[in-house]
């Protein structure tokens, strides 16, 4: 068999298929691509909901934190008011103490004790 003749024949030859690749693309792959696009759209719609749930979760967390912070603030302000009352009382008491006869007596010199006793303590006892 002539080799060059055969090579020429095979080089020019081709295989004829019943369907061309373009027909197969139209029948099989273009449908596949279209359904794939629809699937990806569906997927994006589904993926919207988890994101929404996530944002709800974040909002709820923020609300809880704000609530906790508010109650903490209220507790602290009550405590500080209480502390102020205690301070005021002690201040008044201190003023009373300061003005009391007993307190004054602490600063009296020894030679003035009799005079102080006659002037303040004896008078106070008489008053009561």
């Amino acid at each position: 068999m002539d080799e060059s003749k055969m090579n020429k024949f095979l080089k020019k030859g081709y295989i004829k298929f019943s369907k061309s690749k373009d027909q197969i693309w139209e029948e099989v792959f273009s449908k596949k691509m279209t359904s794939n696009k629809q699937e990806s759209k569906m997927f994006s719609l589904h993926s919207f909901f988890p994101q929404k749930r996530f944002s709800y979760a974040v909002a709820a967390t923020v609300l809880v934190l704000l609530g906790v912070a508010y109650f903490n603030y209220e507790d602290n302000s009550l405590a500080s008011e209480e502390a102020e009352v205690v301070y005021k009382i002690s201040k008044e008491e201190f003023a009373e103490i300061e003005s009391s006869t007993m307190f004054e007596s602490l600063f009296i010199e020894d030679q003035e004790v009799d005079y102080f006793f006659n002037m303040h303590v004896a008078n106070q006892i008489v008053d009561e």
């Binding site: 024949f9 030859g13 081709y14 295989i15």
Partner: peptide
């Protein structure tokens, strides 16, 4: 096994026989 020839329209008997043989 089938091979088509680009020269199918102008195929003479000799080429047809050769193709069949191949």
């Amino acid at each position: 096994f089938e091979i088509k020839s680009n020269e199918a329209e102008n195929e003479n008997q000799e080429i047809i026989n050769y193709r069949k043989k191949m």
